[in-house]
Design a binder for these strands. Structure first.
Ligand SMILES: Nc1ccn([C@H]2C[C@H](O)[C@@H](COP(=O)(O)OP(=O)(O)OP(=O)(O)O)O2)c(=O)n1
Length: 454
DNA sequence: TCAGGAGATAG
DNA sequence: CTATCTC
């Protein structure tokens, strides 16, 4: 009910500043005290010894289009899918356009907004590969979606320290929790921004005291992040933001604080005060449902989460989520950076004005099926894999999605139609019944066929 | 979740 | 298969 981070008014403005580190409980140095160890590439190292960088390309689709067509640069640009501006460049954002805004609204905010269709994701997938390739040279890398990459640079950091290849400089911003953070879009509390910096406490890089131990490791991490972002800007040609911290959770949380085209480091002793005032929804993993459940228990911020005993949290959210959140609320996150390899499924989907006539569904399937098959052929050429199962998912207006699977058929479109007919036959034919408004074809799992590669 | 489109993972 | 979450 109350205390939505999305409410209006003064009280909310204050809350939206997430600034006051009025930590209710928990010490301020959980991370340094943490003795948990991780598995994977840096297995055996205490959490605080890792150096993790989270990279996020700014306004990804928009930058891809700007690189493809230089005439789009220096103009407000929106990328569309159906009637949505799915993302836009930062010139458009200055004019008030936001991610996932309706085209009509975006045009009102910014009449000169240039629109480019982003319905074909192929160029973005290609760009994504280049980005990943450029970043993975710094250490084990994990791709999240198309434009984000975690890199565990612990070894690279250690190597530089061993060689004495340090410059004793902090690169980019070093976050100070006293400066607080906000969210520029009230509907997106996960997109954090640093509040106006207090010059007395803010730090924007440069040299200072000679650092040692964990601080030195992070400092070297900021040099690596700067180099990597410079490389990205030169070769594939994308500006990006980055977060440098001791684990994935914190690196991602601070990574966007000085977006666009800048980086932020979070020293271990700032972590607790930094996350305490954040809304729980800011943490990746806390979505719509979890936020609501926590709200029902009067929990909206991370420090409130800290105060709830684990067993009570488990009853609310289940043991797994509770365990993760309990750690996360204290700034701890032992999840390793994992190299995932190629995707395990390929899907194509289209939505349309609700329609029960089969001709529409058939028309859509006759486009989707060849699209899917093309991508499967490409995947086979690239990775020597094939799919065993076809899953058809559909949605009726106002209803939840439903799906059914079958062995991968010869004729994908025909299988889709068969499913559509079966679904229709099983529905009562009452007038005014909601009609189908989206279909999705998914090939899964993608497994190596014998004699592949090589 | 008001939308579009893709992918992962838990139960 | 469904629910939830992510970008
Ligand atoms: N619900 C979503 C979220 C993201 N994307 C796509 C469009 C984005 O360009 C890309 C990356 O998502 P981000 O959330 O990182 O957003 P941007 O990179 O566009 O902008 P920002 O500079 O805020 O990171 O993924 C999408 O299609 N649908």
């Amino acid at each position: 009910m109350t205390s939505q981070i999305s409410k209006k008014g003064l009280e909310d403005f204050r809350r939206r500043q997430f600034a006051g580190p009025n930590v209710v409980c928990g010490s301020s140095d959980e991370i340094l005290n943490n003795t948990a160890t991780t598995t994977g590439p840096t297995k055996g190292l205490p959490d605080a010894r890792r150096v993790i960088i989270h990279f996020d390309v700014d306004a990804f689709y928009a930058q891809v289009e700007e690189v493809r067509d230089h005439s789009l640069r220096h103009k407000p640009l929106g990328i569309t899918q159906k009637y949505l501006v799915v993302t836009c460049n930062y010139l458009a954002r200055e004019a008030g356009v936001t991610k996932l805004m309706a085209i009509s609204e975006a045009k009102k905010k910014c009449p000169h907004l240039i629109l480019v269709s982003g319905e074909d994701l192929t160029p973005y997938r290609e760009a994504s590969k280049l980005i990943y390739g450029a970043l993975k040279i710094y250490g084990p890398a994990e791709k999240l979606g198309m434009d984000e990459v975690y890199v565990d640079v612990t070894r690279e950091v250690q190597m530089r320290i061993d060689r004495g290849a340090m410059d004793n400089c902090w690169h980019g911003h070093v976050h100070c929790a006293r400066n607080g953070v906000t969210s520029d879009n009230i509907h997106r509390p996960m997109d954090l921004r640093a509040s106006a910096a207090d010059p007395a406490v803010s730090q924007t890089g440069g040299a200072g005291a000679v650092e040692t131990g964990c601080r030195l490791r992070l400092q070297v991490g900021t040099a690596i992040a700067r180099e990597a972002r410079a490389a990205l800007a030169r070769c594939p040609g994308f500006r990006s933001s980055a977060g440098v911290a001791h684990n994935k959770l914190l690196a991602k949380l601070v990574g966007g604080l000085h977006k666009p085209d800048d980086q932020t480091c979070l020293p271990a002793d700032e972590a607790s005060a930094f996350i305490a005032p954040l809304p729980v929804r800011a943490m990746a993993g806390v979505g719509y449902k979890t936020e609501r459940q926590l709200q029902d228990a009067q929990i909206t911020t991370v420090d409130q989460l800290r105060c709830l005993p684990l067993d009570q949290l488990s009853k609310l959210l289940g043991a797994r989520v509770a365990q993760f959140l309990s750690e996360a609320a204290r700034g701890r996150d032992a999840r390793p950076v994992e190299e995932k390899g190629p995707p395990q499924s390929i899907s194509v989907e289209d939505s349309f004005k609700a329609c029960s006539c089969f001709s529409k569904v058939e028309t859509v399937l006759r486009v989707l099926a060849p699209d899917l098959l093309r991508r499967l052929v490409q995947d086979k050429e690239e990775f020597g894999r094939r799919a065993t199962t076809l899953r058809v998912t559909w949605r009726h207006q106002g209803a939840k999605r439903a799906s059914c699977s079958s062995p991968m058929p010869q004729e994908v479109a025909l299988q889709g139609m068969a499913v559509a007919h079966k679904v229709q036959a099983e529905r009562p034919h009452a007038a005014g019944l909601p009609e189908m408004c989206s279909v999705d074809l998914r090939a899964v799992p993608l497994i190596s066929s014998r004699g592949a590669h090589r």
